[in-house]
């Protein structure tokens, strides 16, 4: 099993880099994962990551990209709730990459 080193501790991730145990997540996990993907996390990234964590807490699923886009538009405004903006922040896909940083499983139906 692969691991990433977060604050001196080894945390298990699967072959695609997603956390094996969702409860292992701390904000530092997102930072370490973003460094591996060579992305510098800004407040704009954190808005999305926090949104995803709240969504998971409420519904127990990682939302599909379409659902994420619509929900972000509603909560943070249309200028952020569009796929162009979200792909600028997360070039490997707002579903896959942002969910990974946020410690969520891969969105259901995402291949």
């Amino acid at each position: 099993m692969a691991t990433i080193s977060v604050e001196g501790k080894d945390i298990e991730v699967d072959e695609e880099g997603y956390l094996v145990t969702l409860a292992d997540w701390v904000p530092e996990v997102a930072k370490v994962m973003s460094e591996i993907d060579e992305i510098e996390l800004t407040d704009e990234h954190w808005d999305i990551l926090n949104f995803l964590r709240e969504y998971y807490e409420e519904y127990q699923i990682a939302p599909a990209v379409r659902v994420l886009t619509k929900a972000v538009a509603k909560k943070l405004g249309k200028d952020k709730g569009n796929s162009k903006y979200l792909y600028q922040l997360f070039p490997y896909g707002p579903g896959k990459q942002a969910c990974k940083f946020a410690g969520l499983p891969k969105p259901t139906g995402c291949v």
Binding site: E58, Y59, Q60, I61, P63, A64, V67, A71
Partner: peptide, 14 residues
């Protein structure tokens, strides 16, 4: 076990 009943509440979003 995971309580998946909250997920039914997300169906409207889908």
């Amino acid at each position: 076990m995971k309580n998946f009943s909250p997920t039914y509440k997300a169906l409207g979003d889908y």
